[in-house]
């Protein structure tokens, strides 16, 4: 069998393959190390970090829905200082490129986070801006619903870092194509598509929400067609690298996104169901390419046939 070249390049960064993990679904330091050799991944994306530690939302925070789940974790994390003291040294030992996902309540927060991470540019290869987390009433959502501030956040981060800058969007924010244009103008190098869609589920016995926060972010196979559509439409309109997320469970899902034009594939909720999902997808991708006589993943990327 011929080897398949899965190398993916984004603005000077080289990823040995396009498979990464979606923010908030792969832990912070080695939770999946017993199941997955992190060195085999194309990149690792961290859970969102904020400047100060965040306690997170009350319980229950998750519930299963048809073909997916709702979550309202509330961006629980130990904050920037802990990340720099404890997480950066962990990732420094792993050659896989690290993408750090950040969120703030103001453009100043984004600037401060980007500046702090820039100092660790040997380890931090890219910064992903979480512009859409639907669970943080005062922070992400309230702030991000305001498009002007969203642009300001991208600009502020851009001014502080030369790292690959990814703006992660949610369709909740309004017209994704329009917003994509705005954040690109503001200095983003790439787009993350998509974050979760806001949803809810009611326990009919208690008539209460099954999530303490009442609403939560829907993820998993249920949102895949939506994510795929956005990746396709954005790729058609802009020459911009895209990190795709949304219901990527199997190699078939992954290939659909590649054909639609995705550059990296972020495996999210699938990790919870199958801790080896990333590696299964990688193996399946190589097999598919061999079967179809594809020698470089580049040949497949964006090869969608309109007729």
């Amino acid at each position: 069998m011929k080897t398949v070249d899965l190398t993916t390049r984004i603005k000077g960064l080289v990823f040995k393959n396009p498979v990464t993990v979606a923010s908030g679904t792969f832990g912070t330091t080695g939770e999946y190390a017993g199941y997955v050799d992190y060195r085999k991944l194309g990149a690792i994306i961290t859970k969102t970090i904020t400047i100060k530690p965040r306690e997170g939302n009350p319980m229950p925070r998750i519930c299963e829905t048809a073909g997916g789940m709702l979550n309202a974790i509330g961006l629980q994390n130990k904050g920037l200082d802990d990340f720099i003291a404890n997480k950066i040294p962990y990732y420094a030992k792993i050659a896989t490129p690290l993408i750090v996902n950040i969120a703030g309540e103001s453009e100043g927060d984004f600037a401060k986070l980007a500046r702090a991470l820039q100092k660790h540019s040997r380890v931090v290869k890219a910064i992903e801006l979480n512009l859409s987390c639907p669970n943080v009433e005062k922070g992400g959502a309230g702030f991000m619903k305001k498009r002007r501030l969203m642009k300001a956040a991208v600009k502020a981060a851009r001014a502080e870092t030369d790292r690959l800058l990814i703006a992660k969007l949610s369709p909740e924010l309004g017209d994704v194509l329009e917003i994509a244009g705005e954040v690109l103008d503001a200095g983003a190098d790439a787009l993350g598509l998509i974050n979760t869609l806001k949803g809810m589920a009611i326990n009919i016995e208690t008539r209460r929400s099954r999530i303490a926060n009442i609403t939560g972010g829907l993820s998993g196979p249920a949102i895949k067609p939506v994510a795929l559509r956005y990746v396709y439409e954005v790729k058609k309109k802009y020459a911009v690298p895209v990190i795709a997320a949304g219901g990527i469970m199997t190699v078939r899902d992954a290939l659909e996104f590649i054909i639609a034009g995705a550059d990296l594939l972020a495996v999210g909720t699938a990790n919870f169901v199958n801790p080896r999902a990333t590696l299964d997808i990688l193996e399946g991708m190589t097999e598919y390419c061999q079967r179809h006589g594809i020698r470089r993943i580049e040949e497949l990327r964006g090869s969608f046939r309109h007729v």
């Binding site: 679904t25 999946y32 925070r61 998750i62 979550n71």
Partner: peptide
């Protein structure tokens, strides 16, 4: 608690302790 990942990755199955969830 209801669980998703079972390995500490999703922060869905939290229990409150003096140090937080």
């Amino acid at each position: 608690e209801s669980m998703a990942c079972g390995v500490g990755a999703c922060l869905g199955c939290m229990v409150k302790t003096p140090e937080g969830w």
